[in-house]
């Protein structure tokens, strides 16, 4: 596959919310191109239109005007059911709050996108599920439910779920927001590893330190793109993890100090 092929092309996208007679311009003419295999960060303060842009990119919503080509297919004017199908096949979501089904075990959660997609025999389904669960390192936890897992583990389940249908893009909306810094770094390491395997990843954050894990950063403010930055030397999450003292080591050293 050509690495430079455009996977997303957005031209002059606007989104206007009407609240009673009041019109709110959430997006004011956004132009954005994303290459296949890119790792892109979108940064912006609250109210900058980040969420609205994510919803449109993730096909949860359609723009008021402008065009959106996802893998050369115009998805800006599809109806609910067509959007659902695009989401199922081409988008993998990773949310800040994980959004797993709490009553369903890990296998069931990862299987969810497959339930809503046609075809795929159950044999290959099973293989596929265990494959993605292994790839995020949760093979021993398949029978457990989300509430029996740590935050980091839950986010890994969400990543496995996002991967299972082999989507065109992975949309990660502040995926480390609910995690401590070390666990967050572990999640970033997974994204970087997926990106190295050729996955296109869109990463929304408001922390520059996290945004710099990507190859390019887009700055968003008041519904418009205000700047763009190419990161020549992105932060290597794996390397950072090696430098970071483990929490237990910290606690141990703290304990020694007190006992003295």
């Amino acid at each position: 596959m050509n690495m430079n092929k455009k996977i997303i092309e957005i031209k002059n996208v606007t989104k206007i919310y009407k609240i009673d007679s009041l019109k709110v311009n959430a997006l004011n003419g956004i132009d954005l191109e994303i290459d296949n295999g890119e790792f892109l960060s979108i940064m912006g303060p609250s109210g900058s239109g980040k969420s609205t842009l994510m919803n449109i990119l993730g096909c949860l919503d359609i723009p008021t005007s402008g065009s959106y080509l996802l893998e050369d297919e115009d998805v800006s004017k599809l109806n609910d059911n067509q959007l659902a199908e695009i989401r199922n096949k081409k988008v993998g979501f990773v949310f800040q709050t994980f959004n797993l089904l709490s009553r369903t075990n890990i296998t069931g959660n990862v299987e969810l996108p497959l339930i809503y997609s046609k075809g795929k025999k159950s044999r290959s389904r099973k293989d596929l599920i265990s494959e993605v669960i292994n790839s995020v390192g949760l093979a021993e936890w398949v029978r457990h439910r989300p509430n029996e897992l740590s935050g980091g583990q839950r986010q890994r389940v969400a990543i496995a779920r996002a991967l299972v249908n082999d989507p065109a893009i992975i949309l990660a909306d502040e995926p480390t927001g609910n995690l401590d810094s070390r666990t967050g770094e572990e999640i970033m390491a997974i994204f970087q590893s997926l990106n190295r395997q050729g996955k296109t990843i869109l990463f929304v954050t408001h922390e520059i330190d996290l945004a710099k894990h990507a190859g390019r950063i887009i700055y968003l403010k008041d519904g418009a793109i205000t700047g763009e930055e190419i990161i020549k030397d992105p932060i290597d999450a794996q390397k950072r993890l090696e430098d970071m003292p483990k929490l237990e080591d910290k606690i141990n050293s703290l304990g020694e100090n007190i006992s003295l």
Binding site: D80, N81, A84, R87, N99, L100, L101, L112, Y116, R161
Partner: peptide, 14 residues
């Protein structure tokens, strides 16, 4: 919320 998750992941209205 469960309905939202299912829809985000590709469940149609039907």
């Amino acid at each position: 919320r469960e309905i939202g998750i299912r829809k985000a992941i590709g469940a149609k209205n039907r």
